[in-house]
Amino acid sequence: MAIRRGDDPLDTYLLRIFCLLITERSVSRTALKLNQSQPAISAALKRLRDILGDPLLVREKGGMVPTERALALLSHAKGALAEIDRMTGGPESFDPHTTRQEFRIGSPDYLAPVFVSSVVERLRREAPQARLTLHALGPNVDFERSLAEGDLDVVIGNWPEPPHRMHLSMLLEDEIVCLVSAHHPLAKKGFTPEDYLRAVHVVPMPYSISQRGVIDSVLASQRINRDERVMVQSFTAAPYVLQNTDLVFTTTRHFASFYAKLLPLAIIPSPIAFPPMRFYQLWHDRNHNAPGHIWLRRLLSDCGRRINAALA
Rank of each mutant, 00 (worst) to 15 (best):
L74P: 00
S42R: 10
L296M: 06
V58P: 03
S93A: 13
F255Y: 10
L265I: 01
M277A: 15
A43R: 10
D195K: 00
P269G: 06
Q233D: 14
A80T: 04
T192Y: 09
A31D: 12
F115E: 07
G53M: 05
H76G: 06
H183V: 08
W283E: 00
G63L: 02
P204W: 04
D109C: 01
R229W: 13
A260V: 04
E175G: 07
A220S: 11
N244G: 08
R305D: 15
S169L: 07
E161C: 11
V58L: 06
P91V: 09
R305G: 12
Q281C: 00
I209T: 06
L242Q: 01
V241Q: 07
V177I: 15
M1P: 09
T252W: 02
I41V: 12
A136G: 11
R29Q: 10
C303P: 05
S234M: 01
R4C: 15
A44T: 04
S93T: 12
R47M: 09
T245Y: 06
R306H: 15
T252G: 10
C178T: 08
L247N: 02
V119N: 02
S37T: 12
D109N: 04
R122F: 07
I294E: 01
L299Y: 06
D285K: 00
R125H: 13
P55G: 04
L219T: 01
W159A: 11
G89S: 03
P128Y: 03
T133N: 15
F191N: 05
D8F: 15
L134A: 12
F249M: 04
I51H: 09
L52G: 05
P162S: 01
Y207I: 07
R69C: 07
V114N: 12
S26K: 01
N308F: 09
G150P: 02
L52Q: 08
D85T: 00
I209F: 08
A266F: 02
C303L: 08
A127Q: 05
R298S: 14
L262E: 13
H254D: 10
D227N: 11
R125A: 15
E102A: 10
S28M: 09
A266V: 02
A31S: 07
P9E: 03
L111E: 11
A310K: 15
A80D: 08
D11R: 05
R229F: 13
P185A: 08
A2C: 07
